[in-house]
Amino acid sequence: MLNRVSTYFYRRPRLVLAIFLTPPILYMLVVYLGSLFSLLINGFYSIDDFTGIIVREFTLRTYAQTFNPANREIFLRTASMAAIVTVVDAMLAFPLAYYIAKFASRRLKTWLLIGVTIPLWSSYLVRVYAWKLILAKEGILSWFIDLFHLTGVLDWLLSFPAIGGSSLSLSPIGMFIVFVYIWLPYMIIPIQTALERVPASLLEASSDLGAKPFQTFRNVILPLAFPGVVAGSIFTFSLTLGDFIVPLTLGNSKFFVGQAVFSYQGTGGNIPLAAAMTMGPVLIMVVYLLIARKLGAFDAL
C-alpha cells in the first residue's frame, strides 16, 4: 500500500515539489510580504489632526511629512550613527577574524567561533541591559575612569552638545559604544568567512615576491577580505538604522528613526506616519543591498 503511494509521488516530482513549497511560500507571501505591502499602503493614509483617527484615503501628505526638517534631521543622525558604528565595528572585528581564519589551530578555531556566535545569538536585550549597568554614573566604567584620574576628560567629552549628555548612560557616546558592542559579532563572522577563502599560498606568494607583512596585508589580504566587510556592514548598518531599544534606553530627547517610529505609532497613535518613516530604512537598505551585491558581498554571506 505505502509502496503504491510512494510510487505515485515518485513519478510526480513536480507535485512533491509543490507540496514542499506551498506551506512556507504561502506563509511568507501572505504573512510577511502581505504585511510589508500593508505597511507601504498605510504610508499613503493620513491622520486627522483633530480627532486623531486614521483617514483611509490616498494622500502623499504623510510621505511628504517624513521630509520635514525635524524628520530629515532624525534620518541624518541615525544614518551617521550607523555609518560610524559600521566603520568602528569593521576595525575591531578584523584582528579577531584574521586570527581565527589564519592563525588559530583547528581546535581553537572551533572554540573561538563558538565564542563569537554565542554573543551573536544571545539575548540582544540583555546585552543592552548589561551596558546600562556598566555605563551608569556610579557604575563600573566610571569607577575605572576615576581610578585613572580621567573623569575630567570624560566630563569634557560629555559637554559637547552633539555627542554628550548628563552621563555616559544617557548620551550618544554611550549609544555608540553599545551599538558597536551589540553588532560586532555580525561583522566578525563574514570577515572571517571571506578570509578563510584566501588560500595560504597567496600570502606565501606575496612574501615570496618580496612584500613585507604589512604590504601583503595592504595589497592582498585587505582587498580579498573586503567583500566580507561589506557583507558584515549590511548587518551593522541595517540593524543600527532600525533599532529603537538602544536609543530608548540610553538616548536623550534627540530621536533616532526607530525611536521616532516607535513613538509615532505608540503614544502618537499615528500609524501612517510611522509606516511612512519605516520606508526610509527599507529604501536605504534596498539601495545598500544593491551596492553590496555589486561589490560581491553576497558570496561572503
Binding site: 510577511y32 504585511s35 510589508l36 532600525g242 509606516a275 519605516t278
Partner: peptide, 22 residues
C-alpha cells in the same frame, strides 16, 4: 524571501505586522 525578515531592521517587520494585523 526567507532571509528578508532578519535582513531588514526588526522594526520594519514589527510595524508591518502591526499595520496588517490591525
Amino acid at each position: 524571501l526567507l532571509v528578508l525578515p532578519i535582513a531588514l531592521p526588526g522594526i520594519v517587520t514589527g510595524i508591518a505586522l502591526r499595520t496588517a494585523i490591525g
